[in-house]
Design a protein around this nucleic acid. Structure first.
Lengths: 342, 342
DNA sequence: CTGTTAGCGCATTCAC
DNA sequence: GTGAATGCGCTAACAG
């Protein structure tokens, strides 16, 4: 077999053999100089490394991976890079992976299960572990991949597979309580993707807590969840007569804010809105009351779990829950006097 | 050498040899069935693939890479995943890479040259090409890596290295013209990172066009560029007496908007703000007039250029410029009557 | 401490 | 059209 284009640019890359020949040692010794210097005399290590340096030798990761089966790569697949929920998570995951010396493949499924599977297929062969954030794949598929490689899920609850769940229930409950205390009696839940674990969880939390406090809640969809669909939801929401809304995520809430403004509904004076995820900070107008979801932590924890699993740690039943809480800003206020009576 | 932990989970992954044995052909034939089916009889291909399927065989990318020198991976390094400028670019780059069957490593330098170099070092050995977006590395370093692998730069202008530049000058000039027509005479440029090519380009465009139209421009820094620093810039800006500001990017502009609101300065009635990049859409309040930077296209084009370079295409002097234009929304308006005269 | 030997899984010359 | 042999660059037993 001929040498191919591997190093077509600055000539052929030096291999372990060249270094070995020049330094007058065996290839194994050169290998050890890089992987287990402690096994060699300091003198040898020094000499070999000097030669390697001069030659510009750098270990070929691919060859090493083939030999050891460890390539130091992990993959992270998200459902939508452009959703502000993910970047902080990606960043945190990267940071953690970096510290462990791992490289991370990023995949973007764009909410499409087929694409997600395609990516998975491409990654699986060259990674030591995977993390799937908000996976839209069906359970059976996920199990298949989880059987082949350490795999951890974010915001997807599958029995027996390590997962980290951002538990927005406490925050959502607090939000409902907050709204109730402000005198709201009828509220809307602006719902997200039906296949989303987060959406199901939030919807249930809203219903449960609302029931407990005797609030009426209606559901208005915003699908796919985005600024645009949130904006569109404004009209049906005000038409429904509710005085407050809690949205699937901050983006939807932000759109709702805009839609409300366009309808001349003053927030928070005549309508209250609360978001979810807390990814927009105070950048909305008015600053959004929202449920803080610690998405960055999720990325960090997921990679941590993946690492311990890769290193043979307990891969049993791990279901890591991340807490949430309500952040009250300026988009919520006392319920307005009833419209009908005016 | 013993088998290692590669497939510790569901037993050993089937190799080409197993498929060969079961289908009663040689390993070479199995290999061909996957890489050059045309070389084999249809019957053979069919049979081999059937067996492979049943066994769950899937070609080992790493082994293939070692043999061919092509592993189908590329790396994308950005300076800050969390900056809304990047996600659309990342998404577009991924999409293009996907179509070409490539996997992409994502690196996040967090604006730190040292981290950027670390990442580069980890990636270089296992990718066929790299794209560096808004690299903070010094030119010499970049040249070294570019000599080893096909490499394309985004928003960094280094002679001899393929680069795609988002040319915001036309948009910025249009913005200045727009402001001038609205009667503004004194404006501020809220500047970004000094090492950023984009910042230099924008600053120069502002100066040039302002000079041409006889506007006075002062510079106020917002570093690092963010919502927070933009917000902080509001005070010195109103103190300076200018009536309009053009910000390094949308995030800074958004912060400025908030800072202005906190200072009770009405936008656009008493002050005009224009952003840069157009990554926030209409989500700000008021909707931001901004220079559209087509960041998604940049990612797409960069990967395209990288591909052609990887395939031995002309790697000569390529300097791809992406155009920009002004998007007028609601954050700009006529210059207010002069404050002093009131 | 260091050298020798034997693969990792695959793609590719050559023969046939 | 297909098989046998060889090597990609490296690491890991096994000796010494």
């Amino acid at each position: 077999m001929k040498r191919d284009g591997r190093e077509q640019r600055s000539g052929i890359a030096p291999t372990i053999s060249q270094v070995a020949k020049v330094s007058g040692v065996s290839r194994a010794t050169v290998s050890r100089a890089f992987t287990r210097p402690g096994m060699l005399s300091e003198e040898t290590v020094r000499r070999v490394k000097a030669v390697a340096d001069k030659l510009g030798y750098v270990p070929n990761q691919v060859a090493r991976a083939l030999s050891t089966g460890r390539h130091g790569n992990v993959a992270l697949i998200v459902s939508d890079v452009a959703n502000p929920f993910f970047p902080p998570m990606i960043r945190a995951a990267q940071l953690h992976a970096d510290k462990a010396g791992l490289c991370v493949f990023l995949g973007n499924s764009d909410e499409d299960p087929a694409r997600e599977e395609l990516l998975l297929g491409r990654f699986i062969g060259q990674v030591e572990g995977l993390v799937l954030a908000s996976s839209r794949l069906d359970e059976a598929q996920i199990r298949i991949y989880a059987a082949r490689r350490p795999l951890v899920l974010i915001n997807r609850d599958i029995e027996g597979i390590t997962r980290v769940l951002i538990d927005t229930a406490p925050g959502v409950e607090a939000a409902i309580a907050h709204l109730a205390e402000l005198g709201h009696r009828h509220i809307a839940y602006v719902s997200g993707p039906t296949t989303s674990w987060s959406n199901q969880q939030r919807r249930n939390a809203v219903r449960k807590e609302a029931a407990k406090r005797g609030l009426k809640v209606i559901a208005i969809p915003a699908r796919p969840p985005s600024y645009g669909t949130g904006r569109l939801a404004a009209a049906p929401i005000v038409a429904s007569g509710v005085t407050a809304a809690i949205a699937f995520d901050d983006l939807v809430a932000q759109g709702l804010l805009a839609g409300l403004a366009a309808l001349d509904v003053d927030v928070p004076r005549s309508f209250s809105v609360v978001g979810c995820d807390d990814v927009l900070g105070e950048t909305t107008y008015p600053p959004l009351t929202t449920v803080s979801a610690r998405c960055a932590d999720a990325g960090d924890v997921a990679v941590g779990l993946l690492l311990s699993q890769m290193n043979g740690g307990a891969s049993g039943e791990i279901r890591h829950k991340l807490n949430s809480h309500l952040v009250v800003r300026a988009s919520t206020g006392p319920a307005p006097a009833r419209r009908k009576s005016r």
